[in-house]
Design a protein around this nucleic acid. Sequence first.
DNA 1: ATTAATTTTTAGCTTAGTCTAAATTTTAAT
DNA 2: ATTAAAATTTAGACTAAGCTAAAAATTAAT
Lengths: 219, 219
Amino acid sequence: MNISNSEENYLKTIFHLQADTEKVNTNAVAEKLNTRPASVTDMMKKLSAKKLLDYQPYKGFSLSGEGRKIALGIVRRHRLWEYFLVEKLHLGWDEVHEIAEELEHVSSKRLIDKLDEYLGFPKFDPHGDPIPDSKGKLRRSNEILLLQLPLHQRAEVCRVGNQSAEMLELLQHKNIRIGTKLEVKNNFHFDGSIEVKVKNTTVSISEQLAKNIFVTYES
Amino acid sequence: MNISNSEENYLKTIFHLQADTEKVNTNAVAEKLNTRPASVTDMMKKLSAKKLLDYQPYKGFSLSGEGRKIALGIVRRHRLWEYFLVEKLHLGWDEVHEIAEELEHVSSKRLIDKLDEYLGFPKFDPHGDPIPDSKGKLRRSNEILLLQLPLHQRAEVCRVGNQSAEMLELLQHKNIRIGTKLEVKNNFHFDGSIEVKVKNTTVSISEQLAKNIFVTYES
DNA sequence: ATTAATTTTTAGCTTAGTCTAAATTTTAAT
DNA sequence: ATTAAAATTTAGACTAAGCTAAAAATTAAT
Ligand SMILES: [Mn+2]
Ligand SMILES: [Mn+2]
Ligand SMILES: [Mn+2]
Ligand SMILES: [Mn+2]
């Protein structure tokens, strides 16, 4: 079956939206893809006819098994390319998403598996998102928001929920990146901000920022 | 100005055909791109309207300065990716063209310049074709066909005119690759075949093969 | 339970890129 | 110089992907 770039973008978007809600609705997809709801409905019919989607008019839709498999392939390509762009070409974390958005549609399986091998089978992309393996398997880690990390619990930054240049800049300034170990020392009710210990220094983090940092910890 | 993948493919094809003849004709383009002459005419009108092409109905067409500049950009991307695929990912010379045919349309200038740097600013792609530099400058070497190399003139293989798996296999079998030094020892009128010395062995090369190998030599 | 607001779908248009068949122009051959 | 063949363009149609505006269905509010 042949799948166009546009169809791939829809599948991937639905896949991502399904992380939040099992059933996805028209407006949400239109919003993400910067298209109109009417265009989404058209495409849903097409994907549904191809059996990549379970769709009942007015009731929302979700990926079929096959649709999910294809979406995982696209996500794999996207994240592998992002890893390549950051680790090998030294592009900034904030500029790789856009480029990967195009590269992800180059679909040679052999290319991607060779790339994976060349990169040393990375498990996470530069933003901490897991990279599906060659068989489409995706590890889900038991992460929580830094905002919800208990006081004095040592943890490690594993993912960011936002990849704007602004956030990258702020994190770099505070010396925080994926893998950084930290511990919450204080949290303030007034503005929701927290103080965390990183290495030997203490930095202040706004609620807004702490909502975009995910961490993991043992036990 | 925005240029679609399809338009890029046409521009690149015309660029390549112009290596042979200044003015390119409709059927030649249709043949190369596996489309119909009528489709070519349509596209020529569009490219002409965009001033990327000099076009007079029934008279053929050639790239404008701007068109040539864009075509060189595409060729640059194509050949850099081919180099990457062979040198870094270790794909075979015969399988990279198809993949590069897609990658060449990812047009981020920053991506390509970073890739170029990462690869060490290579001057030639895996088939010996020159890679335009960041400014679109293209070196042309003074190469000749192996078939026309004078007897006993030491020379170096610099390019192949065909990149099929079959030819790759044959060349590998005869231990010949880009950069191989050789010298013609005999040529036979009966079938046009020649004998060349490579390292310390003598190998026989058919006329058909010798027409697809280009060499350079000093003075 | 009606009515109002929101969401989704349908209907009808548009553009890019392709095609086939027919008309036209150019080139080649008598 | 005519005629025949080949190349090119035009005309008209199709598909994919999008849009706007209107209709229909669902959900929320009185
Ligand atoms: Mn994309
Ligand atoms: Mn990412
Ligand atoms: Mn191409
Ligand atoms: Mn090449």
